[in-house]
Amino acid sequence: MSDVIAAEWLKLRSVRSTYYVLAVAALVVLFGVLLSIQGVTYYDQASPEVKARFQAIPLEEYFLPFVQLVVGILGVLAVTSEYATGTITASLVAVPRRGVMLGGKVAATGAVTLVMGTATIVAVFLTGRWIIGGRPFPGNTAPVADRLPLLAAMGLSVMVIALVGLGLGTLMRSTAGGVVSVVFLAFVLPSVSTYLPDPWKGRISAAMLPNLPGELAGVTASASSITEGPFARIVGLPPLGALAVLVAYLALALGAATLRLTRTDA
């Protein structure tokens, strides 16, 4: 198994798409920096009354769906690029036990996306904090140490969405299908769910991937005042419930992928 994981790691390292994803992740951090500078500039020039009413979504919360989308695509490509190019045949001839092949892919892709997702989120957070400095922006004043569980949970959620993308990519054997799935999970469904009537709005939104990290880290209320659309962060599940939902996402996508891979011809 360790040989298979090492091989999958080599595969990820030896294609350009991995570095493209890395570059886009860096771009997300850069946008975070620009947004922080804009916020700070506006704040510094504002009158005291405006300053008192000043609202700011914590950057790491605002950018989480972007990071999920970008790194999630890496998970999709890890498998669909093989179907697109035919490399899957070589993979299955080299490792004919298909569950092992998929397991190696999941392990390598999981490790890479966990590191990549966490690093991106932490970078967005730290650069934002550094630019904001001592200004009392709502949601951006908690001590750094207090936010660490949330940041870790966010990194975890990025890995989960990447592995769900890997699973759905295996299921559909299509890059387009896999990428659309990730867009739905990171943006469309979390957005649509906020327009549902109560109590469904709360129930469904609570299980959306961008909302799970907050719940997992025990952040009881979002600092965001946005309550509708893709950037509304709605919390409703206890940490263990959020963990169960995260695991369910993984189990469903990877379970379906395993069945597809082992029960049908390559």
Binding site: D3, L10, S14, T85, G86, S91, V93, A94
Partner: peptide
């Protein structure tokens, strides 16, 4: 086995293609 010669990821070098293959089988 050689099945379909064109079924290789075009973005990878020959060296890297063979390296990952070798790795899978120790």
């Amino acid at each position: 086995a050689l099945l379909d010669a064109s079924a290789v990821h075009g973005g990878r070098t020959a060296l890297n293609h063979l390296r990952w293959l070798a790795r899978t089988n120790g």
